[in-house]
Design a protein around this nucleic acid. Structure first.
Lengths: 238, 238
DNA sequence: AGAAATTTTGACCAGTTGGAAAAATGTTAG
DNA sequence: CTAACATTTTTCCAACTGGTCAAAATTTCT
C-alpha cells in the first residue's frame, strides 16, 4: 500500500534553499548582520504596509503573495526576494502588532485614580480603533482562526500583563474606589467595546446610515462608553 | 497589444452548465420544485455543518471545497452535486445565520421594563456566543471582510430593526426609566461585549488560564455585564 | 423484478498559488 | 572604470483550486 497523498493544510516544509541574506547571517552567527540598506528598509516597509492591507481583510490563508505584491507595486519574485516566505511577512506584522496593541494597557498606572485611568485607557483604545483599523482587523482575524501563530505570546506576555493590571484593579476595588467586580471581564469589556468600532466598522456604518455614520461616530462612542463604564444605564436624578 | 490576463479575485462568471435540479426547476418555473428527498436534506445539512466549521475559521477565500468535503466525509464532486458552487454554500449559511442572529434583538419588547428587557437580551446574546460560537465567528469573518455578501441586508433589514429598537430605548429614556444616552451605541456595546466571548475565545481562555477559563467563564461574564450595564463601575454604598 | 431516477465516483481540466533558478540589470566602493 | 554586490525580471514548476463530465453504483418507484 503506497503512502497516499497526505492531506495537509500547509505545504510540506522541506528545507529548501536559504535566502541570500539569511545564508550570509548564518555563516557568521556572531557577525553583526550588516545594517539594512536604505532600499531594503524602504521596500520591506512597503511590503509590510501592503501585507497589512491584504491580510487584515482576507486573513492568512485567504491572502495571496500576488495580491500583496500588486498592492506593494512590485513583482511577486521581487517581493519574495525581501521576504522569502509568506509566513515570514505575517510573523513580522504580528509581532510588531502585539507591542503596539498592548501599549495602552501597559500605561494604566496603579498610582492614578481608577476613573481617570480607565477613562483614558478607553479613549486610547478607541483612538487606536479609529486610527489603526487594519491592525485591529489583522488581530481579530488571527483570533478567529484560533491565534495559531501567536498563542504562546497570548498565554505568556498578554496573560502576565493582564494579571498585573487585574491586581491593580482589585486594589482599587478594595480601597472602595471602584465597584467590586471581575477585573478580567472588565478588561475584556473594554477591549470588546472599543475594537468593535474597527472590526465591525461596516456594520456600524450600515446601522448608523450616511448621516450619523461619519467621523463623529467615534466621539459619540466615546461619550456613550464613558457613561456606560461610569454609571451604567440606571438613570440618575439630576 | 493583446489583452493581458486581467487580474480578478474571483474567477470570471461565465454561465456554465446548470445543476440538474436547477435545470429541472427552471424548465417548469411554476411547478412546485419537488420536495427534497431524505438523502438530499441529510446531505445538505451535513455539508452546511461542515462548511460552517471551515468558513467560520478561515473565511470565504481561505476555505476550500476540498476541506469542506473532507469534514463532511464525502468527495468533492459529490459535494458539488448538492451545491454546484462554493458561493452557494456560503450564501445559504449566511442567510440562515442572519435570522438566528437577530432573533434575540427582535424579542426586545416595548411593553416591558427596560432593565428586565436589556438584561435578558444580554443573556440571550451571551448564550448564543456560548452555544453557537461558530456562527458568531462566521459572522465576524464576514464583517472583517467588509460584509461583501450581506451588506444590503445590513443596510436594510438590520438597520430597520435597530432603528425600531432604538426608538423603544429612547421611549424608555424619555420616561426616565433608563439613563439618557445614545441608543445605537448602547446596542453596539451589547453586541460587542457578548460576541467577544465567541470571537475572541482563544484570547479569553489564554488570559483566564486553565483554572478560570472553564465553562464558568460565561457565568462570570454574565454577572459582570449585568453589573456594568446596570450601574457601571462606580462603587455603591451598601 | 426491472425501469427510471438519484447519488457517487474517478478521471480530468484550466487557472491560481507559493516558490525556485538563473539571467539581466542596477549600484557602489576602490 | 570595474569588480563585487544588490536588486529586478523572466521563466518555470509542482501542488492546489474550483469545477466539469461521463460512467458506475445505488436507491426509488411501479
Amino acid at each position: 500500500m503506497p503512502p497516499n497523498k497526505v492531506k495537509s493544510a500547509e505545504p510540506s516544509v522541506a528545507p529548501k534553499r536559504q535566502h541570500k541574506a539569511d545564508a550570509k547571517a548564518a555563516a557568521h552567527p556572531h557577525a553583526k548582520p550588516r545594517p539594512l540598506t536604505r532600499i531594503q528598509r524602504e521596500k520591506q516597509d512597503l511590503i509590510l504596509e501592503a501585507a497589512l492591507e491584504v491580510f487584515s481583510v482576507h486573513g492568512f490563508r485567504g491572502s495571496t503573495i500576488d495580491q500583496i505584491a500588486e498592492v506593494a507595486g512590485m513583482s511577486k519574485p521581487n517581493l519574495l526576494y525581501y521576504f522569502p516566505r509568506k509566513e515570514e511577512i505575517h510573523r513580522r506584522l504580528m509581532s510588531a502588532l502585539l507591542d503596539t496593541w498592548l501599549a495602552p494597557l501597559k500605561e494604566m498606572d496603579a498610582g492614578g485614580d481608577p476613573f481617570p485611568e480607565i477613562r483614558s485607557y478607553i479613549r486610547r483604545k478607541l483612538e487606536m480603533a479609529r486610527d489603526y483599523p487594519r491592525e485591529s482587523r489583522l488581530f481579530a482575524n488571527e483570533m478567529l482562526q484560533g491565534a495559531p501563530r501567536i498563542i504562546e505570546m497570548l498565554e505568556v506576555d498578554l496573560r502576565n500583563l493582564v494579571d498585573e493590571k487585574a491586581q491593580i484593579l482589585l486594589g482599587w476595588m478594595d480601597q472602595g474606589k471602584l465597584a467590586h467586580t471581575d477585573p478580567y471581564h472588565l478588561i475584556f469589556s473594554i477591549w470588546a467595546t472599543t475594537q468593535h468600532y474597527a472590526d465591525f466598522d461596516v456594520q456600524v456604518r450600515a446601522v448608523l446610515g450616511k448621516d450619523r455614520g461619519g467621523e463623529g461616530r467615534f466621539e459619540d462612542a466615546a461619550r456613550y462608553l464613558e457613561q456606560l463604564f461610569l454609571f451604567g444605564l440606571t438613570p440618575r436624578k439630576a
